[in-house]
């Protein structure tokens, strides 16, 4: 493992560092839980790591609830997500996903931004953010910030829409402050109960009004396609229906809609048929336990 390290503390320094390294090999480092594995075989000195961990800019480091939106800095760790009261009550699915991330030690250092930028189809927090239809706030070295839906941010396995000179600043979840009943969870299926990489995951966030009618539904599925998928038609299927009135055939219909978004592969961790079957069963289960 061999590389140069720069540690900007202000956004200005960060953008300058990016600019200076234009055309050369560099990587960002946040919590390093993915990056270190990538760098293990790194031999030559031709790589610079731009260390984000020392950055002092609250837009990167804090969780802000501000009227119409919830802003989560890219450097916020999984542990901090879990501990955030506002997230717990308003968007529990994100806390539930963060709570199943690796182990306590990993959660303490792994960041939301890193989870998104790694663009793994098995990213847990990323899956919850897709379900919540969050947006990415992206900063280029020069020019204006841009914003993009998380689901459009992922282009393929380990591939994002970030340009070479761009850094992810934060993610933004649109909110409204009305009283809602939330039915949500992050379902992560693997061989064991912790330190696991999902073979199938489902993040769901369903809001209902006082009448038990579903008003908003977000469902995202992980590890069953090259990128995390938002199961739009399954979400639309739910809105306007009453959660408690759905019978077995409707649950199956719903589950079939979720599965339409999957194109699983077989690999060392699971076979495609298993992923698909379990995705169907677990989608069904969303409507069973409420």
């Amino acid at each position: 493992m061999n590389f140069d390290l720069v540690s900007p503390t202000t956004t200005e320094d960060l953008l300058r560092a990016i600019d200076e390294h234009r055309g050369r090999r560099f990587r960002f480092g946040a919590g390093y839980t993915d990056l270190l594995l990538d760098l293990e075989e790194q031999q030559d000195n031709e790589l610079t790591v731009i260390n984000l961990a020392r950055l002092n800019d609250p837009s990167f480091t804090s969780i802000v609830h501000d009227g119409g939106e919830m802003r989560i800095g890219a450097l916020v760790t999984a542990s901090r997500i879990i501990a955030d009261r506002k997230l717990q009550s308003r968007y529990p699915v994100l806390c539930q996903a963060a709570g199943q991330h690796g182990s306590r030690q990993i959660r303490h250092t792994a960041t939301v931004g890193g989870n998104l930028c790694t663009a793994s189809p098995a990213g847990d927090m990323a899956c919850a953010l897709v379900a919540l239809r969050a947006r990415c706030d992206i900063l280029p070295a020069r020019g204006d910030a841009r914003s993009l839906a998380v689901s459009d941010f992922f282009l393929g396995v380990r591939e994002t829409d970030l340009k070479e000179d761009e850094v992810l600043r934060r993610v933004i979840i649109p909110t409204d402050d009305g009283e809602v009943k939330t039915h949500s969870d992050f379902i992560k299926i693997g061989k064991r109960r912790s330190m696991e990489c999902a073979v199938v995951s489902i993040a769901y966030h369903i809001e209902s009004d006082g009448d038990d009618t579903m008003t908003r539904a977000g469902i995202a599925i992980g590890s069953v396609a090259p990128t995390i998928k938002y199961a739009r038609s399954a979400c639309e299927y739910l809105v306007g229906k009453r959660l408690s009135s759905l019978g077995p055939s409707e649950r199956d219909e719903f589950a079939a809609k979720v599965v339409e978004y999957a194109s699983p592969i077989s690999d060392i961790r699971a076979s495609a048929w298993y992923r698909e079957d379990v995705l169907f069963n677990m989608s069904k289960s969303i409507l069973e336990n409420h």
Binding site: C197, I268, R269
Partner: peptide, 15 residues
């Protein structure tokens, strides 16, 4: 095929 703890799963404390 799976020479890593990532893909060779020993039980974790939670199990």
């Amino acid at each position: 095929v799976n020479p890593t703890f990532h893909n060779y799963k020993i039980p974790s404390a939670c199990d």
